[in-house]
Design a protein around this nucleic acid. Structure first.
Length: 127
RNA sequence: AUAGCAGAUCUAUCUUAUCGUCAUGUGAAAAUGUGAAGGAAAGUCCGGACAUCAAAGAGUAGUAUAGCGGAUAACGUCCGUCCAGCGAGAGUUGAGGACAAGUGCAACAGAAAGAAAGUACAGUUCGGCUGUAGUGAAACCAGGUAAACUCUAUACGAUGCAAUGCCAUGUAAAUUAGAGCUCGAGAGCUACUCGCUCAAUUCUAAAGGGUAGGCAGAUAGAUUCUAAGAGUAAUUUUAGAACUAGAUAAAUGAUAAGAACCUUCAAAGGGACAGAAUUCGGCUUAUUGAUCUGCUAUAUUU
RNA sequence: GGCUCCAUAGUUCAACUGAAUAGAAUAUCAGAUUUCGGCUCUGAGGGUUGCAGGUUUGAAUCCUGCUGGAGUCA
């Protein structure tokens, strides 16, 4: 499997995002929070993902872009954790709920625990 | 040497490797080549390009600007120059037209700041008539104030890429109340008036239902660089060369190694402000570390 | 991306289109009343009028530029 994260694999549809925020579930690994829902989407990938950083906590566009890039990068390298486990299509939205910028290594490890948590949650729900 | 003034330029990086992002070329595919943030991309404060509004109709209102001359697509920008303020000087700041068109305003003080009266002294044609003093930012009958209304001159049609054109998807040509059907409801171009045009399965309101996707606009342009000329300058003419992001829940990133720079004896640490959103010319604001050019004053030495 | 508006005591608002100590309510503090507290009464303090310039004799008010906040447009 290749560690790519192209245009089709990202969550872009406004309708899907609305649906996600209305009826999705969430897992947390501070400062990250992932909303998820099992649904059909617009591509053939196992999941589509979006990232968001609130303007409330980071006023400057430079900081927001930086954090989004870090989150995308760490997801890209670790998405295999999720893809090996799920069988039906999902959509994710990962938000940054902290108020201070953190380093790449921390984002990487937090993303790891977040994705592991998600796998546990989704298995419990099925069972 | 010290202190200072003015202006210009770069923008804290570079190399290699691995894994990626967006656009685009080649290819049947696998792959692979090329390009990828700023001086302010910011604030949205001015001015244009471009697009739409059935003729960009007329008038009024409104807004902006304000010595003089020039530059420019245009400007509230820039250049030159006069005047005024500040500075010892290099320089710097200035919404810098009109109060002899009209209206208004003027706290306190003062006799008096528009309709009323008069202090002291001097002069005197003996009339508050003339001047001076005193008060005040401003005064013996006029003056001050227009970043007060206003007048003069000049400019401005309105709305903005969420403009606009096309394609696709979906529901309800349903319900209730009211108005109207050429003697016209309403709509279109706007703040107002007039004029003009369209207009009936129509218009307004209530509650309710649906869509919220794609393509074009959209990146080659008042473009950039170099040379030679015109001009005090802003700027401009000619010739040659170059192609330089185009995303849309929104690309330009992560890791590792090395080099240079700054602080420090060393270890170690550090690199500002900040992220394109149709686009261009300005202004304003934020900001690191430098480099260069011209000039002024003072002191000393030759 | 475009457009519009707001900012005055700790809080909520005044101050007419410029005139001098920027007011009121509430909150705070002190005193009176009460056995004590509350209510009530009396008094006091609290403001660089968001920031920086300009016009003016004089600015919360007029003008310009910033800062922060709010609203609106397919």
């Amino acid at each position: 499997m290749k560690n790519t994260l192209g245009k089709l694999e990202r969550l872009k549809s406004k309708k899907l995002i609305e649906k996600l925020y209305q009826s999705g579930n969430s897992v947390k690994s501070f400062p990250l929070r992932m909303m998820y829902i099992q649904t059909e989407h617009t591509s053939d990938f196992p999941a589509q993902i979006g990232v968001s950083v609130p303007k409330r906590n980071f006023k400057l566009a430079v900081d927001r872009n930086r954090i989004k890039r870090l989150m995308r990068e760490s997801y890209r390298l670790q998405k295999g954790i999720v893809y090996d486990q799920i069988e039906e299509p999902y959509i994710f939205m990962i938000s940054y709920i902290g108020t201070e910028e953190i380093k790449y290594e921390e984002v990487y490890s937090k993303m790891n625990t977040l994705l592991t948590l998600f796998i546990e949650h989704s298995k419990n729900r099925i069972n």
